[in-house]
Design a binder for these strands. Structure first.
Lengths: 186, 186
DNA sequence: AAGATCATGTAAGAGGTTACATGATTGA
DNA sequence: TCAATCATGTAACCTCTTACATGATCTT
């Protein structure tokens, strides 16, 4: 699996604390890799034991102390080995679709509401990604080339979110057409 | 979590053996819910203990015996309770994107090959989904209405796969443009 | 003779979530 | 004064994967 490798990829770019990594997972990588802080700390512990990373304690007076992790030689070797191997296609487990599949068991109003809620979330994710894209596009050519691959992953997010929203519109329209009285019923 | 609920949704439509459920997960639900046979059998055991499902043993002379599971009253109540509750948005953990993000560590040729391989898989998934869509569209109006919600989940698959392929083309073109000598290099 | 399909499982371990725990500083 | 940010963790539990296990029939 690859939370370990996702962490290594981040540390390969720059040494970070667990807290920094979590922020990364929430921001730049968040649309394709999710991890809670507990899991990141657990994995950092394991990575340290395996000697793929090391850390140095940094005491701070105004803020809590922190541990700055960096990738080791052994970690780099492991990472470059991993990155050359084929990755499996993704497992998709989407509860919303399970719910929709069995949607005859829920009030139609409920389904519509659920779709609305998810639409809002996807909409705002898309806006975030587009904001980051604007930042990228305003860089000079050298930097653009430097961040090209991360930018490609950003594009995945943008294209994916647009597709999601397009689909949701289609579903909402279809459900609306199928039961046009939905707003009158309770 | 919802493998339990995905199973209940399927059993609510018709009683099935574990083996049948696995086939369902590979076919109709496969593009939004994945489960291996071991996990299905484990969950069926738990669902039986919780009395959300029951089973009857069917002996067969030419094939191995099997257990036909069906949803109980208690299971139905649980399912309809679950289906009315909001579901969380999906966790996405996509190793291919981690790999691409750290792609400067791999030979460019390797990335291109990886994208090609995944493209083939997504292409054939899309073709399957489109085939199923044609079947759906050839049904009479009554049946179309009956399968509308499962069809909506199928649409998610189709729109999602098209978006994936669109993205992959973009990436392949970009990488090709950035290193046009890639075909000459070994 | 080999591989696919049918059919069911156990066990060990890795991965991931939820709950609990602490405690300072900064901004509204 | 309440919430957010910074910063790290443990413990219990659930979920999921991988490896192992069996064995008949049918098709190539």
């Amino acid at each position: 699996m690859s939370l370990k490798h996702a962490i290594l990829v981040l540390l390969e770019t720059e040494p970070s604390s667990g807290y920094d990594l979590v922020k990364h997972f929430k921001r730049s990588l968040g649309y394709f890799w999710n991890a809670k802080h507990q899991q990141v700390y657990q994995q950092l512990k394991k990575l340290t034991e395996a000697q793929w990373v090391t850390f140095q304690a940094h005491s701070q007076s105004d803020k809590p102390d922190k541990k700055i992790y960096e990738i080791t030689q052994r970690g780099k070797e492991e990472l470059s080995k991993w990155i050359k191997q084929p990755v499996k296609t993704n497992r998709i487990n989407d509860s919303l679709l399970v719910k929709l599949y069995g949607g005859h068991l829920a009030p139609r109003k409920n389904l519509m509401q659920e779709l609305e809620n998810h639409t809002e979330i996807h909409q705002s994710t898309l806006e975030n990604l587009e904001r980051i894209e604007q930042l990228y596009l305003s860089l000079n050519e050298e930097k653009k080339a430097h961040y090209l691959l991360p930018y490609m992953t950003l594009r995945r997010g943008i294209i994916g979110e647009r597709a999601w929203l397009e689909w949701a519109e289609e579903v909402k329209n279809t459900l609306q057409r199928q039961s046009p009285d939905i707003k009158k019923a309770d």
